[in-house]
């Protein structure tokens, strides 16, 4: 499963970059994130509950932020393991300044699901993956906006 998208962030590129990588923000924006603990430089362990409607699985996950090129580029790698199987996703984020207080965010992702969910979920997995990723960036955008407004 793969896809891409873009959105406009209502903040300058440096500020956007900083907020996007703020663990507190990540915790808020990752769907079903119950707990996010820093375990190493740019590496977190998280308890995620991912899914749609009543169909949810709990995954013990690691989230790593890689290829940091402040303030333009980074890579987010998520690996999760749980009773329903495994989830692996890599997202690449590129930020382009769009004036003083606006930034264009482009993202692309690749996600793979293994085990039980892969065996039975084919009909909807692609769509749901897209939904989960879109949800993440949408929340990031909102969170950034909220922080900018309150700042």
């Amino acid at each position: 499963m793969e896809g891409k998208g873009n959105m406009v962030l209502e903040a300058g590129v440096n500020r956007a970059y900083e907020v996007l990588l703020d663990p507190a923000v990540l915790e808020k924006c990752i769907m079903g994130c119950k707990k996010l603990v820093l375990v190493d430089d740019n590496k977190y362990e998280a308890e995620l509950s991912i899914g749609i409607a009543a169909i949810k699985g709990n995954y013990s996950s690691t989230i790593e932020i890689l290829d940091l090129e402040e303030p333009r580029h980074y890579k987010l790698a998520v690996k999760g393991e749980g009773a329903p199987g495994t989830v692996e996703a890599v997202g690449i984020v590129d930020l382009t300044p769009d004036g003083e207080s606006s930034t264009l965010l482009n993202y692309s992702y690749e996600a793979e699901v293994g085990g039980k969910v892969a065996m039975v979920g084919q009909r909807m997995l692609g769509g749901v993956a897209k939904l989960v990723i879109q949800d993440f960036f949408k929340k990031l955008g909102k969170e950034l906006k909220r922080m900018e407004q309150s700042a």
């Binding site: 699901v113 039980k116 892969a118 065996m119 039975v120 009909r123």
Partner: peptide, 14 residues
């Protein structure tokens, strides 16, 4: 199977 060796047809739905 996908190219990672994941089975994609694990029920009679698929």
């Amino acid at each position: 199977y996908d190219n990672k060796g994941q089975l994609l047809t694990g029920s009679f739905m698929d």
